[in-house]
Computed example of a mutant assay.
Amino acid sequence: MKQQVYALYQKMFQKMGPQGWWPADSKEEIILGAILVQNTNWQNAAISLKNLKAVTGFSSSQIASLSIENLQELIRPSGFFKSKSQAIHEIFTWLIPFNSNFLKVKNYYGKSLRKKLLSFHGIGEETADVLLLYVFDVSVFVADTYARRLFTQLGTPELHNYQSLKKLVDLSRFTLVEAQEFHGLIDEFGKVFLKRNTFETSFLNDEKINLRQE
């Protein structure tokens, strides 16, 4: 099945081209964006990012030193600001001893890094995998809503939750850059053909992949 998944990626990349995901100028900005975009749209998250950049320049130490009240006010436009402020504060405080050296963090935690990310307030499976993929340079599959909708349309049944798809997708053939592009391609495809249920008009309409078949 990993050959079929890689062929799907190649077809999407040939048709859509590079997506440049995650859109950010630094890994600190990626962390913030991944948290702020939870349960809202990117436009609202972008306002909060602009507020944070003006005050902190996306410096980890300056973000960590913000009071919770100040942080909440800066990110209010993205909603759920109490929960998100706690997540931001916890993660950036955690990064301080590592001097925001993400390779050092990755090497220190090894295979337990995902578990550590999940231990932070407000960090669920999708956000943890986004951080692994784009911040810590680990080739993982982000089995978000668009990904589950896509593989359901392609013929894989019973994708009720995040793990139901994640455990089926093998990215061992993918380079890191390809894994990053794959997530971006799926989400950009989803915005056009899955959000409004127009999959049958897409270039993938004739593709069939059932990841549950042996």
Results as ranks from 00 to 15, higher is better:
S61A: 10
N197T: 06
A87G: 14
I31V: 15
E200N: 10
E29F: 00
Q72C: 14
A147V: 07
K106G: 03
R114G: 07
K84H: 03
L66W: 13
V135G: 11
H89D: 11
A45N: 13
G155S: 12
H121L: 01
W22S: 06
D170E: 10
N99V: 03
K106Y: 07
R148W: 04
Y108W: 08
I88F: 06
D170G: 14
Q38M: 02
E90S: 11
A24F: 08
R76H: 12
Q19F: 12
A34I: 01
F81N: 09
L113W: 05
E29T: 00
K82L: 05
R149L: 15
K195E: 05
P18S: 15
F203T: 06
E178D: 06
L49H: 08
F182R: 03
E73I: 06
S172R: 09
S202K: 07
A143N: 09
L36A: 07
F102P: 00
P23W: 05
I186C: 02
Q10N: 12
I186K: 03
F151N: 10
F80L: 12
T201D: 15
T56D: 13
A45S: 15
Y109G: 00
Q62G: 05
F141L: 10
N44M: 12
F92H: 00
L168W: 08
S172M: 08
F141R: 11
S67F: 15
L165A: 07
K27H: 11
K115Y: 10
Q19G: 14
L117K: 05
L154Y: 12
K84T: 04
V135N: 12
F102A: 00
K84Q: 09
Q213A: 15
S67N: 12
G33T: 04
T40E: 15
I96T: 05
F199N: 01
S164L: 01
G184K: 06
I186Y: 01
E207I: 09
V55D: 03
A147S: 15
D129H: 02
T145D: 14
T93R: 06
Q72E: 15
S83V: 08
P23F: 10
E69N: 14
F80N: 03
A147Q: 08
